[in-house]
Structure formats: structure tokens, C-alpha cells
Amino acid sequence: MNVFRLTGDLSHLAAIIILLLKIWKTRSCAGISGKSQILFAVVFTSRYLDLLTSFISLYNTSMKVIYIGCAYATLYFVYMKFKATYDGNHDTFRVEFLLVPVGGLSFLVNHDFSPLEILWTFSIYLESVAILPQLFMISKTGEAETITTHYLFFLGLYRALYLFNWIWRFYFEGFFDMIAIVAGLVQTILYCDFFYLYITKVLKGKKLSLPA
């Protein structure tokens, strides 16, 4: 464990909590892409099946349980409890355009052709593009609530910190996982546009609005 990975995990946890609080406090999931939340739930479910097969540490197990629990709680909020506030008309990204290539690639490029390993690889590739429906929705509505931008900031920051974690682990432990690193790079690059808007607008107290 190193400082980048720990702060990365905490940033990820913060993002997940911020989203849940935003929906709970405002009793609304306006501006939230349900499709991205479905993809994240699929990412956690397919990646954390090893909860049933191996124990790494209390931290590892408890964080996995928290992530999965929050992911499904968010889906419950978006598609059941606060369904009336879900903006389905703007959440129109075709997720099959993500699932098919990612599914195919996880069979072609993986570390080991075993079910758990292919599911892990699938979850890594899927996570790198899972935010696209959310970013697409913001580009369609042309704006995002400030609390939603904080959610996206911490969500993007987490994988950027993981990139430093992998540099650290390569240097100190000789460990590196090319699949996770390449997918993590893609994932972080997809946020660059948002990071620019977040830093130049939201941090200056302005609302995040895109030239529609």
C-alpha cells in the first residue's frame, strides 16, 4: 500500500459518497446518468467476485463491500426511489457501443484465460469508459450541478492517483500490470476536458456550463 493508492481509494470513496449524498439531500438524480451508474455497478460486480474466493486484507474486503453496496444503492435511488427525477431523455448514450468492444477485447487481451481473470479484465476495460454516458449527458444538457462536478472531479482524480501508484509500485516493487495501466491512462485522459473546465470554472465559483 502506498500514499497514492490510499488517497486514490479515498478519493474514489469520496466520489461515491458525494453522489449518494447529492441524490439523498436534493431527493433528485437530475443530471445523473443512470447508464454510467449501471456500468459502474457492473464494473464492481465483475471485478469483486474474488470476494468469494480470496481474502487479501480487511481493508480490501471492506472497501469492496462498500463500493458494491453504494453502487447498488445509487441504482436503487436513480431507477426506483427517485425515478421521477431521472432525466432519461438526456441519458441516451448507446452503452452497447461500449459493452461489445470491451467484452470482445477482454477475451483477446488478458493475463489468463480463466473466468475470474477475464471478468477482472472486462471490469478494468469497462471502467475506463464507464463515465462516457455521464460526460455525454452533460454535453447534451450543456451544464452540470456543482455538486455533480465535485463527484466527477474525485472520480477522475482517483484513477489519476492510481497512475502514480503504479509508477511507485514499478519503482519500489517491480510490479506493473500493463492492462490496468493502459486502461487507467485512457480513463484519466477522458477526464482531461472536464478537469480543465472544473479548474477554470467551478473552482472559480462559476457554474459548469458547456457551450451547448
Binding site: 493508492r5 474474488d50 463500493y67 481473470e117 500490470d177
Partner: peptide, 10 residues
């Protein structure tokens, strides 16, 4: 990979 098929990161 620590042990084949085991990933220690979240």
C-alpha cells in the same frame, strides 16, 4: 499478479 488470478488492488 500476486498469485495467478489474484489482484490486490481495488
Amino acid at each position: 499478479l500476486l498469485v495467478l488470478g489474484e489482484h490486490d488492488e481495488l
